[in-house]
Computed example of a mutant assay.
Amino acid sequence: MSFQAYIDNIQKKTGKTPADFKELATKKGFLKDGNLVVKATEITNWLKEEFKLGHGHAMAVYATFKGKTK
């Protein structure tokens, strides 16, 4: 599955774009000035619990926080 397919599936499931998740993560204190201030596990656990994402999909969102888009 391509990275874009992961992102598309996440948006279909949650109704949220990577930018939406970034805004939510900033509000939760996971990002400050656009930079991650927590470990990947904290982010993936949040996404799994709150949005019922699987590990691979949670990691795709995390990757967008790190600036990876492919």
Score class of each variant (00 low, 15 high):
His57Arg: 11
Asn35Glu: 12
Gly67Asn: 09
Gln11Ser: 11
Phe51Glu: 01
Lys32Ser: 10
Lys27Arg: 13
Tyr62Ser: 04
Thr14Asp: 07
Tyr62Arg: 06
Lys16Glu: 11
Asp20Ala: 11
Lys68Asn: 12
Ala58Phe: 01
Gly54Ser: 11
Ala60Gln: 02
Gly29Asp: 09
Thr17Tyr: 13
Lys48Glu: 12
Thr17Ser: 15
Lys39Leu: 08
His57Asp: 15
Ala40Thr: 11
Glu50Ser: 12
Gly15Asp: 09
Val38Leu: 04
Leu36Lys: 09
Thr69Trp: 15
Trp46Gly: 01
Lys32Gly: 04
Val38Pro: 00
Thr14Arg: 06
Thr14Ile: 10
Lys48Cys: 06
Lys16Phe: 13
Val61Gly: 02
Lys39Ser: 07
Asn9Cys: 10
Val61Phe: 05
Lys66Thr: 14
Gly56Pro: 06
Glu49Cys: 01
Lys70Cys: 12
Gly67Leu: 09
Lys12Thr: 12
Ala60His: 01
Asp20Ser: 11
Glu49Gln: 12
Lys66Trp: 02
Ala19Asn: 15
Lys48Asp: 08
Glu42Leu: 08
Ala63Ile: 03
Ala60Arg: 03
Ala60Val: 03
Pro18Gln: 05
Thr17Trp: 12
Glu42Gly: 05
Gly54Phe: 02
Thr69Phe: 14
Gly15Cys: 08
Gly15Pro: 04
Lys52Thr: 10
Leu36Asn: 04
Trp46Cys: 00
Ala63Val: 00
Val37Gly: 03
Phe65Asp: 02
Gly15His: 07
Lys27Ser: 13
Ile10Cys: 06
Thr69His: 14
Thr17Ala: 10
Gly67Glu: 06
Lys66Ile: 10
Asn9Met: 09
Glu49Phe: 06
Lys12Leu: 14
Asn45Asp: 13
Lys52Ile: 06
